[in-house]
Nucleic acid binder design. Structure first.
Length: 582
RNA sequence: CGGGGCGUGGCUCAAUGGUAGAGCGCUCGCUUGGGGUGCGAGAGACUCCGGGUUCAAUUCCCGGCGCCCCGACCA
């Protein structure tokens, strides 16, 4: 492709609202433009990368017998009513009406549609298992789109769904998909990590997220040298080693006036005590009944863990009036001491059902917490003497200092960009949508399902986020929009263009894609643009080297340039091809 | 959903109660030719929309729309 006639509007400056590295570079390199909040246009250069990633995904899924389909973006309400997700999905589901006022939504995902398709035409165990996938736009009406295409409202995604006769078969295929995902992200040249993830209340019993390691990632992951890796929202933590303190060292309980201070931050500063001494007291409604959860002041409670511990179907933060009724004071002044006697009868709630304390509280001596009295906190609180929870459990989000649940070594924390997720869905959708088959005994059984997504557009951004420098993007060769940048210096000088043309033809003959900068621009402009676009290999044709029958070869990721004899070009290219495993 | 900010040429931004200017980009000419060359000449803006105040509004006020940031929410 000749740059003189390629739609590649590069920019010196990124738009003011570009809020991270990858989106700035994507704008500057002429890959994308913004049409509206969270909605982007992909220009030719950007689309080439997207298609590169797409092809890698397609090849790897086809290897495990995936079959590509194309599903509608516009999906009827009725189908979404069957699973109940028309209501559950909330405002993220973008809804529209046609001219007859029939209601539809823009697909945020496609479990309903694919399951409907399979239930209609698959009816025997002989037809299972089956793995179907598609590439397509997804629309999620995010409250706050940001980071360019990383968290866009409309994005390009590969979604795959598998259907099985048995749980065991679903497990086998889950591993196949897991393996395919590893191949995909490896081939894309990404440093990534599969981590255990929470499948959330949506169901399913196992899930992994594939994280591209990047400091700017939105997700935090906990890693251990033993190999355990999990999203911090999911990561379990080992119970810390027991620590015993002589009860004679217990300080006496004392109430302290703390007017208007309801955050751990405020109170610990005021009392001049470490946040780790705080016993954070939170109330929840577990299936409608009030429960109290205690975590250490420097920890954050993880609602998913708490839900699991309580075996609750629904868990929500308790509204203010529950605090008033159960603890007799506003949130921020509730505490564990004598809590079960603070219930104010006659209010519109039941008494406290359970008190769950995080393991970490076993290590808190002479702690402080709310006094169950407005504007008052209690200091000198000790487990056993002053309060006794109904149970201890791991209910806080993994944090600095926590230990790996497998080997008890401290976690290492990193940030990541979630580019893919795999789920075992079980029969959640096949049951609600009655997607059944007849087994060998003529029994009608719901299929066991799995679903597997890859954010293709996000993967492109993640690759840039992970690989760039002050000059621009540095593409991995496998997903670069073109492999070679061919730069002609002084296009008006005699012989330059014809020699460049010869190199251009040779590159093509050797099987490489080339973007040839044949513009009548100054060298500086061309080099800046080439670095910005970040193609992995660059060849410069100029009078300087041509007089020796040579051109210049340089890798984007490296500083040094090499002289290549033009006559040896085919050999050099063949070597490069071998090195790339092409 | 709460708080804050912004809306002026393609991009980044100035300015002003009397209808606008710079840099970059674009066009033309010359110049230059290995890291965004220099000079000159141009094209390009109903100053987001609607209303109000005013002799006069891009500027002040109100409403709307759009965008951004922080937080909450959501998975």
């Amino acid at each position: 492709m000749k740059l003189s006639n390629y739609f590649l509007p590069t920019l010196r400056e990124a738009p003011a609202d570009a809020d991270n590295i990858s989106v700035k570079l994507m704008f500057r390199a002429g890959m994308i433009r913004k049409l509206a909040s969270g909605i982007y246009e992909w220009l030719p250069l950007g689309l080439r990368v997207l298609k590169k990633v797409e092809n890698i995904v397609r090849e790897e899924l086809d290897k495990i017998n995936g079959q590509e389909v194309w599903l509608p973006v516009i999906q009827p309400k009725e189908l979404w009513m069957e699973t109940g997700r028309w209501q559950i999905y909330g405002k993220e589901l973008l809804r529209i009406q046609d001219r007859k006022d029939s209601e539809f939504c823009f697909a945020p995902t496609a479990e309903e549609v694919i399951t409907n398709m399979v239930r209609r035409d698959v009816s025997s165990y002989r037809q299972l298992p089956i793995l179907l996938y598609q590439f397509g736009e997804k629309f999620r009406d995010e409250i706050r789109p940001r980071f360019g295409v990383m968290r866009a409202r409309e994005f390009y995604m590969k979604d795959a769904y598998s259907f099985h006769a048995t749980e065991a078969d679903s497990d086998v295929w889950y591993q196949k998909l897991y393996g395919a995902y590893e191949s995909i992200f490896t081939r894309c040249g990404l440093k990534y990590k599969p981590v255990e993830a929470d499948s959330g209340p949506i169901g399913g019993n196992q899930s992994h997220e594939f994280m591209v390691i990047a400091d700017t990632g939105e997700a935090e992951i906990a890693l251990c040298e033993c190999g355990y890796a999990a999203n911090t929202e999911k990561a379990e933590t080992a119970e810390p080693p027991a620590r015993t303190v002589d009860p004679s060292k217990f300080a006496p309980l004392k109430d302290v006036a703390t007017p208007g201070m309801y955050t751990v931050e405020d109170v610990s500063r005021f009392l001049k005590l470490n946040k780790k001494q705080a016993i954070k007291t939170l109330f929840f409604l577990a299936d409608g009944e009030p429960v109290m959860a205690l975590v250490r002041g420097d920890h954050e409670l993880n609602e998913n863990k708490l839900r699991r511990v309580l075996s609750a179907a629904e868990l929500e933060k308790a509204p203010q009036h529950i605090y008033e009724a159960v603890a007799g004071c506003p949130a921020g002044f509730a505490g564990p001491v004598d809590i079960k006697n603070k219930y104010v009868p006659g209010r519109d709630t039941k008494p406290l059902k359970t008190v769950i304390a995080d393991y970490a509280l076993k290590g808190v001596f002479n702690g402080f917490s709310g006094a169950n009295k407005n504007d008052t906190h209690t200091v000198g609180i000790n487990l056993g003497r002053d309060y006794t929870p109904d149970a201890f459990a791991d209910i806080h989000a993994a944090a600095e200092g926590d230990l790996c649940p497998r080997c008890k070594k401290p976690f290492i924390f990193k940030r990541g960009i979630e580019v893919g997720q795999t789920f075992k869905l079980g029969t959640k959708y096949s049951k609600s949508l009655k997607c059944e088959f007849l087994d060998e005994r003529q029994q009608s059984v719901p299929m066991v399902m799995g679903c597997y997504g890859i954010g293709v557009s996000r993967t492109v951004a993640a690759a840039i986020e992970q690989s760039n420098d002050e000059w621009g993007i540095i593409w991995p060769a496998s997903i670069a929009p073109f492999e070679f940048s061919l730069v002609s210096i002084e296009t008006e000088a005699s012989g330059i263009l014809s020699q460049s043309q010869a190199v251009y033809d040779q590159l093509h003959a050797s099987g490489f894609s080339v973007l040839w900068d044949d513009r009548d621009e100054r060298p500086g402009v061309k080099f800046k643009d080439a670095d910005l676009i970040g193609l992995p290999f660059r060849i410069v044709v100029s009078a300087k080297t041509l007089k020796d029958g040579e051109c210049e070869f340089k890798r984007r990721a490296e500083k040094t340039a090499f002289r290549w004899k033009l006559a040896e070009l085919p050999v050099k290219l063949a070597e490069l091809k071998t090195a790339l495993g092409k």
